[in-house]
Amino acid sequence: MTRSLLLQQCVNCRKFQYLVRPFCVFCRTTVLSAVAAAGTGTVDSFTVVHRAETPYTLARVRLTEGPILLTHLIDNPEPRCDQPVRLAWRGDLPVFRPVE
């Protein structure tokens, strides 16, 4: 079974949004469709959290389609801004790892 991250796309203005809403946040129309994300993006910003037993990286990732997600970076010992990343899954949560 292939997993995908679903985005909403406005039928009127064609823009994408993440988090399900009853209307388009750009043009306010109520006609939206569900579209699978490409699963790629870039790191806008990040921080390494050291308060946990094992440090982890929290990042703001801008998807190729435009929406922004606050997520974890995995398998990334040296994160950086503008780094290309791809979608992975940790349980039911979308996370991102560097593009190889």
Rank of each mutant, 00 (worst) to 15 (best):
T40N: 03
I74H: 06
E100V: 11
P98Y: 14
M1S: 06
E100F: 12
P84L: 06
R60A: 07
P98I: 13
F46T: 15
V99E: 15
R28V: 05
D44A: 11
T40V: 11
F96P: 06
L19Q: 06
R28G: 00
R62H: 11
L19F: 08
V31P: 00
N12C: 07
T57V: 12
R21T: 14
E53L: 08
G39R: 05
L7A: 03
E78F: 02
V20F: 05
G41I: 05
G91A: 09
A37I: 03
T57N: 09
P77D: 04
P22T: 07
A37D: 03
C81Y: 00
Q83P: 05
G41S: 06
D82F: 00
F96A: 02
A59Q: 09
C24K: 08
R62G: 04
T30N: 15
V35S: 06
G66K: 04
F96H: 05
E53Q: 14
R80A: 15
N76H: 06
S4P: 01
Y56T: 01
T57L: 04
N76G: 01
Y18C: 02
G66M: 01
L93C: 09
F26M: 01
R51E: 12
S33M: 08
H50W: 11
L70S: 11
L32M: 15
L73M: 07
R86S: 06
P55V: 13
T47W: 05
G66W: 07
V49D: 09
C13R: 09
A88T: 11
C27F: 12
E65M: 02
A52Q: 14
L73R: 02
E53W: 03
V25Y: 01
T40W: 09
T54L: 15
D92P: 09
T42S: 12
V99W: 03
E53M: 04
V61W: 04
N12K: 08
